[in-house]
């Protein structure tokens, strides 16, 4: 009984962390079609922003949920103004440019923070479920991921700003004809995407040892999740994160963590073979 509960929590946690890792990329790549290879570095910077803020005496939750997204969002804003905005619609060029950015951010972080592992400890204590101990922080990640999905849904479905953003991504010429400036809408959307990446990096920071190259560990999973998700932003994100989180955890518990990772990749290959346009091209069609 206890063990099934513990495994359930671990599975939810795996899904939630995939949602977190991929949310920023879903906005930047899924919506805006910018292949952001610096996504992992945005997360890394979110982690460093949190650790630095905590070091300066800021409450850890404020640092994670407010400061890190803001700082990374602002960095994203600068990047968008200087680089990305010249490259909209040029898929391959954005890839090269953001790859260069990722190398630059790694270099900058190394210069500022040094090439050593840093970190903060988790702010929530573990607790016992029957004979087992659970990491209390897992629940925090699950809650944040759920809130994030709800907030994204509310934003894009319920607000005028969300409607305008979605409209602009589909037909920027029509949005311009209706009197909205696509330039500014792209800018704002990129800001949101970067802030989400920063948030993910911040929330995962207490669980890991952070080095300037940490971003590389997330980038592949984020792209796989977003691409397998397909055209719908939120439905795609949630459905592919659930599929991959579930598959990898089943194999992790049944065999080993390595096999779990392998299973995730094999699942992605099979999924994309069966549904080249992603899960939401077949299921949940027309959903947001």
């Amino acid at each position: 009984m206890d063990i099934s509960f513990v495994i359930l929590v671990e599975m939810l946690y795996a899904v939630a962390s995939l949602v977190l890792i991929s949310a920023g990329l879903a906005v930047v790549f899924g919506m805006m079609k910018v292949i952001n290879l610096a996504h992992g570095e945005f997360m890394m910077m979110g982690g460093y922003a949190t650790i630095t803020a905590v070091g300066l005496g800021v409450n850890v939750f404020v640092a994670m949920l407010v400061i890190a997204p803001l700082i990374v969002g602002l960095i994203g804003l600068v990047v968008e103004r200087l680089v990305i905005r010249h490259l909209y619609g040029r898929l391959v060029d954005t890839m090269l440019a953001t790859w260069g950015l990722s190398l630059m951010f790694i270099g900058l972080a190394t210069m500022i923070f040094g090439n050593t592992t840093t970190g903060i400890s988790t702010p929530i204590a573990g607790f016992a479920v029957g004979d087992y101990q659970i990491n209390g922080y897992n629940f925090f990640i699950i809650v944040v991921a759920i809130l994030l999905v709800i907030a994204l849904y509310a934003l894009f479905r319920g607000t005028r700003a969300g409607l305008i953003a979605r409209g602009t991504m589909q037909r920027s010429d029509m949005a311009a004809a209706l009197g909205y400036s696509p330039d500014r809408i792209y800018m704002a959307t990129f800001f949101c995407g970067s802030a989400l990446s920063g948030l993910a990096g911040a929330i995962l920071a207490p669980l890991v040892g952070l080095v300037p190259t940490s971003g590389g560990a997330y980038i592949a999973k984020a792209f796989i999740t977003v691409i397998a998700g397909g055209p719908s932003l939120i439905a795609g994100l949630v459905s592919s994160a659930t599929t991959f989180g579930f598959v990898s955890q089943v194999f992790t518990f049944a065999i080993s963590p390595v096999i779990g990772e392998v299973a995730l990749l094999i699942a992605a290959v099979i999924l994309l073979r069966a549904m080249p346009q992603g899960i939401t091209s077949r299921f949940f069609r027309g959903k947001l």
Partner: peptide
């Protein structure tokens, strides 16, 4: 390495 350092952190966080 740095990534594996996470184990010691998560081990403590789980109260183990």
């Amino acid at each position: 390495g740095g990534a594996h350092l996470s184990f010691f952190r998560q081990w403590a966080a789980a109260g183990m």
